[in-house]
Amino acid sequence: MSSSAVTVIGLGPMGRALAGAFVAAGVRTTVWNRTPGRDRELIERGALAAGSAAEAVAASPLTVVCLVNYDATDAVLRTEAVTAALKGRTVVNLTADTPDRARDTGRWAAEHGIFYLDGAVMTPTPTIGTPHAVLIHSGPQELYQEHRPVLDALGGTHTHLGEDLGRAAAYDIALLDIFWTTMAGYVHALAVAGAEGVAPRELAPFAQGIAAILPPLFQEWAEDVETGSYSGEGNPLTSAVSSMAHIVHASEAHGIEAGVMRAAEGLARRAVGLGHGADGFSRLAEVLARR
């Protein structure tokens, strides 16, 4: 069995992109999916089809898994036949879920003689196999280095974040938190602007301007939270509360639900009530973390 061989379990959009990148790089690639038919294009390009999940993982020293969540991963990997076939082989799980689930899967793997790395794909499917892909990994450093030559076929930047198997999932959850709360704010803004007669395409350039001021704030607020400074010199929480209240009022005046902004406003008011009105918005990270 060639060390330059990989099995991909899960052929949703991301799984197909991963398998396609391996095939394009000349890696012997075996594929399997719970729903038949999704492997047709990959097979035409040179991938090998497996008749079962057990047959698939037995075909390669390395199996890359990309399913919807760890419930799906468990349903495939933790069957008697697949678990037995994986013994002595490596699983790289790029399925998104929580840090605790990643650690639990690592414990299961160790109990059954399976080598295990957790990870996440941080960029969309079109980036896979290009210099723009970003992947993060966690688990044993030596195991990561052993399989890095094959993983490099996925392109882009690979970062090993540490031995703790839950660390990649922790980054993934935190970064997706940024993405989805930001996008929730944007679609809400489009709804409110539209209610006031502002077309989405009219708003978009100004929205991009707002996005451009965020990267330096990310760094500044990270330093605030690490040092405990929470500077509010430029924009104290009392001012933030006032502007958030305006957004809630304008939204609800048009019958647009404002629950997300109400939650943010409520958290900011709580911080003000705790005596942090002169602090910056970064103070909310400390308030949220209080037990």
Rank of each mutant, 00 (worst) to 15 (best):
I114H: 03
A72W: 05
L67R: 02
G88C: 13
L86F: 01
T79S: 12
A50F: 02
N93F: 00
I114Y: 00
R89E: 06
T95V: 10
R101G: 11
A59D: 07
V64Q: 04
V68P: 00
D118V: 12
E80T: 14
A84I: 04
W108K: 13
R101C: 13
L62K: 06
A110C: 01
T90Q: 04
L62S: 13
T79C: 03
T123W: 08
D97Y: 01
L77Y: 06
A58D: 14
T123I: 11
T105G: 10
M122L: 15
D74N: 14
A75H: 11
M122N: 10
I114W: 00
D97T: 04
V65R: 01
R89L: 04
N93S: 12
W108I: 10
V65N: 07
L117D: 12
N69Q: 00
A56W: 07
T63I: 07
L67D: 01
E111I: 03
A54T: 07
M122P: 06
P61R: 10
G113K: 09
L94D: 03
Y116I: 15
A56P: 11
V64W: 00
V121R: 03
V64S: 06
D100H: 09
D100Q: 14
L86M: 04
G88F: 06
L117F: 03
L67Y: 08
N93E: 05
Y116E: 15
T98P: 01
L62H: 06
E55A: 13
G106R: 08
D74A: 15
W108E: 14
R107M: 08
E80D: 15
A102G: 09
F115K: 14
G88M: 14
G113P: 07
L117R: 08
A56R: 05
S60K: 03
M122I: 07
P61E: 12
A110D: 13
I114Q: 06
E111T: 08
T73S: 11
L77C: 12
A59G: 11
L67G: 04
N93G: 07
D97H: 01
R78C: 11
C66I: 03
S60A: 15
A54Q: 05
R89C: 07
A54Y: 07
V91T: 09
A58E: 13
L86C: 08
V121W: 00
G106D: 10
T90S: 12
L62W: 01
A72L: 04
A102W: 00
A50K: 01
T79W: 06
Y70I: 12
A53Q: 03
D97M: 05
D74R: 15
V68Y: 13
A96I: 03
G106Q: 08
D97V: 05
K87L: 02
P61N: 11
T95P: 04
G88V: 12
T105N: 12
T63M: 05
H112V: 09
V92K: 05
P61G: 15
G88L: 13
A56F: 07
L67W: 06
A56Y: 08
T90M: 04
Y70P: 14
L117A: 14
V76T: 03
